Simulated assay, not measured.
Amino acid sequence: MKLDNRGLEPPQPMMRTLATLEDLPEGETLSIINDRRPMFLYEQLDEMGCRHVTSELEDGSFLIEIKK
């Protein structure tokens, strides 16, 4: 599943991501694209037991792949 959060003001990207993760089946991966590195999201993901990898894209946005 993919979620494009570019152009949204904080905290909307984090709220959208967490809401989408609620419905994501165990073992599935959510790929999100943000304008900035989601520093506050990482703590939430760790508490939820999700694994995550962040990559900076050529346009300066960030791809975060989250495995539930």
Rank of each mutant, 00 (worst) to 15 (best):
residue 37 R to E: 07
residue 9 E to I: 07
residue 35 D to M: 11
residue 25 P to Y: 09
residue 37 R to C: 04
residue 31 S to M: 12
residue 49 G to P: 04
residue 42 Y to E: 10
residue 4 D to M: 00
residue 40 F to T: 12
residue 64 I to T: 05
residue 6 R to I: 04
residue 39 M to G: 11
residue 36 R to V: 09
residue 25 P to L: 12
residue 20 T to D: 05
residue 56 E to R: 14
residue 15 M to T: 08
residue 53 V to R: 14
residue 37 R to Y: 01
residue 56 E to A: 04
residue 68 K to T: 04
residue 36 R to W: 11
residue 67 K to C: 07
residue 66 I to M: 14
residue 32 I to F: 09
residue 30 L to S: 07
residue 60 G to A: 04
residue 20 T to N: 00
residue 12 Q to M: 12
residue 5 N to C: 15
residue 54 T to W: 05
residue 56 E to C: 05
residue 54 T to S: 09
residue 19 A to P: 02
residue 63 L to K: 13
residue 14 M to G: 02
residue 68 K to N: 05
residue 43 E to M: 08
residue 32 I to A: 01
residue 64 I to F: 02
residue 49 G to F: 01
residue 2 K to P: 05
residue 37 R to V: 02
residue 39 M to Q: 13
residue 49 G to K: 06
residue 29 T to E: 04
residue 28 E to N: 08
residue 14 M to A: 02
residue 57 L to V: 03
residue 9 E to Y: 03
residue 26 E to V: 09
residue 22 E to S: 12
residue 13 P to Q: 03
residue 19 A to G: 09
residue 22 E to C: 12
residue 32 I to N: 05
residue 5 N to V: 13
residue 40 F to Q: 04
residue 45 L to A: 03
residue 54 T to N: 02
residue 33 I to C: 06
residue 2 K to W: 07
residue 46 D to T: 10
residue 55 S to L: 01
residue 67 K to G: 07
residue 57 L to W: 03
residue 23 D to K: 14
residue 3 L to G: 11
residue 60 G to V: 03
residue 11 P to K: 07
residue 18 L to W: 03
residue 64 I to P: 06
residue 39 M to W: 13
residue 26 E to D: 08
residue 66 I to F: 12
residue 9 E to G: 00
residue 45 L to M: 05
residue 7 G to S: 05
residue 15 M to P: 01
residue 57 L to H: 09
residue 50 C to I: 15
residue 31 S to V: 15
residue 26 E to A: 06
residue 59 D to M: 12
residue 38 P to C: 06
residue 20 T to W: 02
residue 11 P to F: 00
residue 66 I to Q: 08
residue 63 L to V: 08
residue 65 E to S: 11
residue 45 L to V: 02
residue 18 L to C: 09
residue 15 M to I: 14
residue 56 E to M: 11
residue 55 S to N: 06
residue 41 L to S: 11
residue 48 M to Q: 15
residue 50 C to P: 14
residue 41 L to I: 09
residue 37 R to N: 08
residue 62 F to L: 10
residue 7 G to I: 00
residue 49 G to R: 06
residue 62 F to Q: 02
residue 67 K to N: 12
residue 42 Y to P: 01
residue 31 S to I: 14
residue 53 V to A: 15
residue 16 R to C: 03
residue 62 F to S: 03
residue 1 M to C: 10
residue 23 D to G: 15
residue 26 E to P: 07
residue 11 P to Y: 02
residue 25 P to F: 03
residue 63 L to G: 04
residue 64 I to A: 07
residue 23 D to A: 15
residue 49 G to I: 08
residue 46 D to Q: 10
residue 61 S to W: 01
residue 55 S to D: 04
residue 58 E to S: 01
residue 24 L to C: 13
residue 42 Y to R: 05
residue 64 I to V: 13
residue 59 D to S: 02
residue 59 D to A: 10
residue 12 Q to H: 11
residue 46 D to G: 15
residue 39 M to P: 09
residue 54 T to Q: 00
residue 61 S to Q: 04
residue 8 L to K: 09
residue 22 E to V: 15
residue 34 N to S: 02
residue 50 C to W: 14
residue 52 H to G: 08
residue 18 L to Q: 10
residue 14 M to R: 01
residue 44 Q to L: 10
residue 25 P to K: 10
residue 21 L to Q: 11
residue 31 S to F: 08
residue 28 E to K: 14
residue 9 E to D: 02
residue 27 G to D: 06
